[in-house]
Design a protein around this nucleic acid. Structure first.
Lengths: 252, 252
DNA sequence: CCAAAAGTGTTGAAGTTACACCCATGC
DNA sequence: GCATGGGTGTAACTTCAACACTTTTGG
């Protein structure tokens, strides 16, 4: 072992640790994810799309780093955030485009990086897109139309999907993806999108309503070319009651 | 940003990333965990016990690093390994004893470290303890008698317990903690230890036997001062069948 | 013969699945 | 009036929870 005893500079970027964020949304039809486009400087070799992410600072914890990246990118604070895990094979930078891109944005492009992945749930209407230092353009993509991403980001996306799938079976986190007022059909489609399987309409409605975690509003959809749907809101109070009594299973 | 362009030395330790391992065992009564004792050089300030772990090399992936630490410590290869997640507040080294200990074993004791935690399941009889460069003495401790550990290791242990608890509800990984031949009562106690709640004996037996993932051996316990118990073994083939048909819930 | 853990069935309640038709609206 | 999605009930089946006594061995 070589003794270097170099002083750690607290507010510098740590060249070895990054965070990447899988930002999920729901367009009322499909589950979507926010991707950045690395643009033309990859000369169109390899995938142009990537998950948003960046190196962490030495004086912030990992969750803070994820929140910072999110705020820089979406302008949103305090959104639902869950760690997926750590990734980072030594050879994760296997594509020419990846290497080229890193050289354009990193001080130490050859450093061994491990990345801590998070997934987050945002209400699409709340989201105010904004360009940032590391994202030329950004946009939503339908999750199941993606089949290639930069670095190991495709693998990370798959892992995030799986975590979300498991989580939604035991906690009603889906409400983070819906507007304040929503219909049972929208909630139904959301669950089907995440679980990637059809759910019987009547059984789904019965199950949700029995839990009493949604409250019917005195309001209906307007202007739709079919029978207008009842609107509901999430009942946070009731949810707290349930979880405190050890509830942890929806049975989907 | 400062351009350094230093060459990464592939087979050097990365000062910023470590792995820590929660090695679970089962003594047929309680869930246990393998801890290292940092010994006398802490002057008995703060907790002496810690999870085994070490920095990663730049040329190994994180899973490999965890396997390496495990093999160095227990001599075991190919054991059940599951990532818990990444940890590492900037201020995780908050205890004097921690700082002092790091100075004795690390080239860059002040570096910001994030650690990737894993939990593993070992059959206690297979385990051959051996001292290593970073562990003076090691030993098993009963999980629920621990209330303090070095660094953020107590927090990591709690997270690992929780992951194990969730996992065992959906996959029969408990067999990794039992000897090849075991009794239903031992399996029962194992599930109760992990889930931290009593399970009805008859209902438990019925549920396990219906799944057919254990096979009755033509052999019984010998030399016990009570009715000798039937011995069983895990049926791996049957388990593969089940999981391929999408089975993922024990319903505990 | 005593202590200790093994082993075994039934019943009532709750939950799950599968399934088809009428309703309210915009155009 | 027609296309579109909204909304509703029931019956058969499966699963779950609760519960107490007899058996076999070693000492």
């Amino acid at each position: 072992m070589k003794k270097e005893l170099k002083k750690v500079v607290q507010n510098e970027l740590n060249p070895n640790v990054s965070v990447d964020c899988v930002i999920f949304g729901f367009d009322l039809e499909r589950l979507t994810v926010l991707l950045i486009d690395r643009g033309g400087n990859t000369k169109n070799i390899g995938p142009r799309l990537a998950l948003p992410g960046n190196l962490i600072y030495n004086n912030e914890n990992i969750d803070q780093a994820a929140n910072r990246v999110l705020e820089e990118l979406t302008g949103l604070k305090d959104i639902y955030l869950e760690q997926v895990g750590a990734f980072g094979d030594p050879n994760r930078i296997c594509k020419d485009a990846d290497r080229e891109w890193l050289q354009s944005i990193r001080a130490e492009p050859e450093a061994r990086v491990i990345t801590v992945a998070y997934y987050t749930l945002v209400k699409m209407p709340d989201y105010a897109p904004q360009a940032s230092s590391f994202a030329k353009t950004i946009g939503w993509a339908s999750v199941n139309q993606i089949n290639e991403l930069a670095f190991d980001h495709f693998e990370i996306l798959q892992a995030a999907k799986e975590k979300l799938k498991q989580k939604i079976k035991i906690q009603p986190i889906g409400f983070n993806l819906l507007p304040e007022k929503f219909t049972l059909s929208q909630l139904h489609r959301l669950y089907e999108s995440i679980l990637e399987k059809p759910l019987d309409k009547r059984n789904f409605r019965r199950k949700i309503q029995k839990l009493e975690i949604i409250t019917s509003l005195k309001e209906k959809q307007r202007g739709v070319p079919h029978k207008p749907s009842q609107l509901f809101e999430f009942n946070e109070v009731r949810y707290q009651e349930l979880t405190q009594n050890g509830f942890d299973n929806f049975g989907f």
